[in-house]
Design a protein around this nucleic acid. Sequence first.
DNA 1: AATGAATGAGACTTCATTCAT
DNA 2: CATGAATGAAGTCTCATTCAT
Lengths: 209, 209, 209, 209
Amino acid sequence: MTSSAEPVSRAERKKQELRREIIDAAFDCFAERGYHATGIADVAARLGIGHGTFYRYFQNKRDIVDHVVDDLVARITGALTAENAPDAVSTLSEYREQSARIGEALARIFGEDPRVPRLLLFEAPGIDRAMAERILDLFDLAAALTAAYLSHGVELGYLRADLDVDNTARAINGMILGTAISSLRTPEAQAAQSEALRRVMYDGIAARD
Amino acid sequence: MTSSAEPVSRAERKKQELRREIIDAAFDCFAERGYHATGIADVAARLGIGHGTFYRYFQNKRDIVDHVVDDLVARITGALTAENAPDAVSTLSEYREQSARIGEALARIFGEDPRVPRLLLFEAPGIDRAMAERILDLFDLAAALTAAYLSHGVELGYLRADLDVDNTARAINGMILGTAISSLRTPEAQAAQSEALRRVMYDGIAARD
Amino acid sequence: MTSSAEPVSRAERKKQELRREIIDAAFDCFAERGYHATGIADVAARLGIGHGTFYRYFQNKRDIVDHVVDDLVARITGALTAENAPDAVSTLSEYREQSARIGEALARIFGEDPRVPRLLLFEAPGIDRAMAERILDLFDLAAALTAAYLSHGVELGYLRADLDVDNTARAINGMILGTAISSLRTPEAQAAQSEALRRVMYDGIAARD
Amino acid sequence: MTSSAEPVSRAERKKQELRREIIDAAFDCFAERGYHATGIADVAARLGIGHGTFYRYFQNKRDIVDHVVDDLVARITGALTAENAPDAVSTLSEYREQSARIGEALARIFGEDPRVPRLLLFEAPGIDRAMAERILDLFDLAAALTAAYLSHGVELGYLRADLDVDNTARAINGMILGTAISSLRTPEAQAAQSEALRRVMYDGIAARD
DNA sequence: AATGAATGAGACTTCATTCAT
DNA sequence: CATGAATGAAGTCTCATTCAT
């Protein structure tokens, strides 16, 4: 069987490879110097390609940042949906474990590469109204996801019966957001912050009598 | 006594007035069209002044956005420190009331003018590394402030004795942040979100037996 | 009376002056090197101004060529309508004289500066569909004008009664056009060509018995 | 006898065929969108060939337009020289018939495909100084041709003895040119214009007593 | 003090052409 | 022989900033 008989030719694969490299290089540049301070020439130079080549792969500068964000979103949702489904747990302690796992997954993504939250939270929203909306969409999506987890818990009785799932979901996601932002400066505090987050989340801060 | 004899002359007052108007106009523009999409000419045109005049009041384009942020920060801290001090309360219910008041104050600022959170959270961080740091400074400041409230509560015994005040403060502020961002799209949900926030904050989401 | 009291300030006059200089420089460049081979930088350099200045006076490159054409059209129509009206003549010999005058006026414009026909006939039509239409409009206008002269002659009886004025007008204008094009190469033949043109126009080429 | 033994191999014929198709496609594109707005890729795409292939048949973009013009010129001269020679007529009425035939042939070419005059008169001259000269050469050639017809008529006595053949030739050709241009907008007027043209040409516009 | 005309650095983008496959 | 990926020169246009009036 020759390689030319394969559905994806070597040339095609190489093309996809370069496409990916451009996305990665653009991510590097945008995260490092910011979207507006980055020129197409910078992205191209980082790869050692001509800047005309960039335009063979992406429509324009605005185009690629969408793909960069696509990529990050895929990375995050991939990590989250990997092994955790809302209905995979049935007790509070299982839920705690699950949320710890989720927290760890997020911590890994955000903590290991602070450029991810930097680009998503600090760079992207300022690019454009459209991009700001995309980020807000992401928040909405995350809220819906978290709300599903909460609903499941309310149904099974291990979460408060009177929980306002939607708004509580947003509050919890806000805590995650706060952690992500904090980790931009103090990535070493990640673990403690996750712990504090879960403590608040489950039990609140009020003293119990 | 003539006005010219006063320490602040009429001309000086007028200058300060225009300075303020420029800041306000810049805020309007930046929030409306974004920092990069706004030209100095836009700001000047909004005031009906020549754009050369701008440079008699501010060093450059980058300069003014600092002042705009100064202004917003002052507005927020002013609202917060107005009547609430960490040591003004001594019981849990008083604390709940106080945090409700603070929440209302924040809601007023963020909810009444969504351009405030939009500029602070969506525009500013993407301008510059320096500006991003300023925003992170703000988060740190807010964390310290919140931590002070929590410490006070721990000392007086109405909050958990084992509270990790610093990290918990960041988690709580994250919830506020989440509320602020949500209110960009659904300002009408403000009250419910504040309520949910406080519910999580004090009691968590876990069912009590 | 101070100059500032005048309706047109010195600054305003200077602005109009530069505007005119830019149009002239653009005309020079377009006629010399062609529209597409001319860069805005070339036009600016010819005047010793920054190329950014150009954009203070004209929207873009396409914009100015319209003004250049406006200018040439005004020059031509100005020369034509100066002293000649269709109803100013009443006999054939007067008409011959009038057409000789018109021919001389056109010869002066086209012959003295071959760049005028070059730009109007050789450069402009290839710029754009819109510009080509403009040039065709000019031909239509010229045809209407010539037709008016012919109609007058038919009415007064010194031109053939059965003249197809519209199509004959186009034929005559074609001869003028041919003369203009010929003069691009052999300007010295202008007079002889005009003479031959008028000879054909009035009497045709057929021998008379 | 196999085809490979023939002086022009099948491969060679195929090559010539594609060459011709490229010229035609280029003509289509240039006439449709203009020379400068047409990219080599457009021409190639119209044929479904790779745009690299173009360069195996033509030196460069400038090269092909020369061939396109060659082609059009051949088409026109072919139609003109087909059956009409200056010395084929010997009386005025025969000459009238001959010029009617020539006029019809031109009308067929220009009228049936307005892209021919459009490219020759509106696109080509603006491409280049060299191309403008080529078009002027064409006018000169046409003038010489027409002059030959006129000379013949003068010699045989059916045209005015004192005819300035060269300049009259240019005047007549100008009328043809005017007709061609007019037919860009009103192709339906072709016949009437040709008639008016011939009327002027032979008898002029002046009334006869 | 206010103005806005002038400036030019600099960014994006296109596309004719080359050349390795 | 055909292809199309890569290239970079070149051109258009914007806009922050300066400075003479």
